[in-house]
Write a protein that binds this DNA or RNA. Structure first.
Lengths: 180, 180
DNA sequence: CACGACACAAACAGGTCTGTATCGATCAGG
DNA sequence: CCTGATCGATACAGACCTGTTTGTGTCGTG
């Protein structure tokens, strides 16, 4: 059920998918949905938590293959992210999409999204430290801007452009982070 | 009327603002609104066109002060953008927000947003060429990712962090664009 | 077998949405 | 002063939304 809702929410946007469509597509009764999720807002938050877990699952799988080489790890992450962004049905980062759909920062889903982006920057800072950047938090911020930019720029990027652009940019930023 | 609609749309999101609220706030009749805009979708497209014109108005005003120094022009743009992003009521780039709210790429407002982002990259390429980058289109793509990333990362950036982060990143990218 | 927890189905309540229709007021030009 | 165009106000149509209620079935466990 949550999987069906997640797929619908991601493809068509959270606000344009009603609970009636979710229960129809999932083949469950509306009472069942409301037993597991108190409100639709809770369902949206659960959707983002699921996406969050999926994202870090993929991240950790990549990171585990490069425990001793932070540069290789970062490039592997950018490969993976660039490939995902270039997919034909890519519709942007779900966390950013939901944040754009709900301006209220106290919405339960917004809290999930904010935590996700904080964690994202935290992990980038870890890599920046291991890379020996002189100001790791600055490098993490730069990489965070870069990758979030890629998430929202899929439409304007040419096919296959994302990955090389991400990697070239990251290399330039890392080189600069050591000289200063 | 369009100004009222634009303010409401930007602050609360397009989908959560109904035409009834627009006409109430604008002090006009709904018949008048529908005389000037055939549908709400047309009103949304007009909202983005207005934002587009405003954005390039500000851009051109900045550019006019630095016609002979592309580096100074870019830094001035980043100053202006960073300041805007750091404002307390900043709610992201309206073009990106609407794109996130409407997955259908054939929505009239999506066409305005796509054209805006193409124009954005086109102008950045002009600056990259004048800067003497060896691959100006690549540098423009990098700067485009960077700035769009800043647009969506306002929530996660610390106060006053945006501008120095943007400028430091741009300098690193420009330095790298000349050596390669 | 019996019971309780959970499932589906379907109707409903109360509200909101876009877009239209109707009516009266105002105002400018001939 | 008359006519026509534009405006505001209001009610309405028809659809959609979230969430609840009611009733019926079904399954696993004691």
């Amino acid at each position: 059920m949550l999987e069906t809702a997640s797929s619908l929410f991601y493809r068509h946007g959270v606000r344009s998918v009603g609970v009636d469509l979710v229960v129809l597509e999932a083949g469950v009764a509306k009472t069942s949905l409301y037993r597991h999720f108190r409100t639709k807002d809770d369902l949206i938050a659960a959707f983002l938590e699921r996406e969050d877990a999926d994202f870090w699952g993929g991240w950790d799988r990549v990171a585990a293959r490069h425990t001793d080489d932070p540069m290789a790890e970062l490039e592997a992450h950018l490969d993976w992210i660039g490939e995902r962004v270039a997919r034909p049905n890519y519709r942007g980062c779900p966390q950013l999409n939901v944040a754009a759909e709900f301006p209220q920062t106290d919405h339960p889903a917004r809290k999930v999204a904010a935590a996700h982006k904080r964690e994202f920057r935290r992990r980038l800072r870890g890599i920046a430290e291991r890379l020996g950047a002189s100001r790791p938090d600055e490098l993490a911020g730069q990489l965070s801007l870069l990758i979030n930019g890629a998430f929202v720029s899929a439409q304007v990027l040419g096919p296959g452009e994302a990955t090389p652009l991400l990697k070239a940019t990251a290399r330039a930023l890392i080189a600069a982070s050591k000289t200063a």
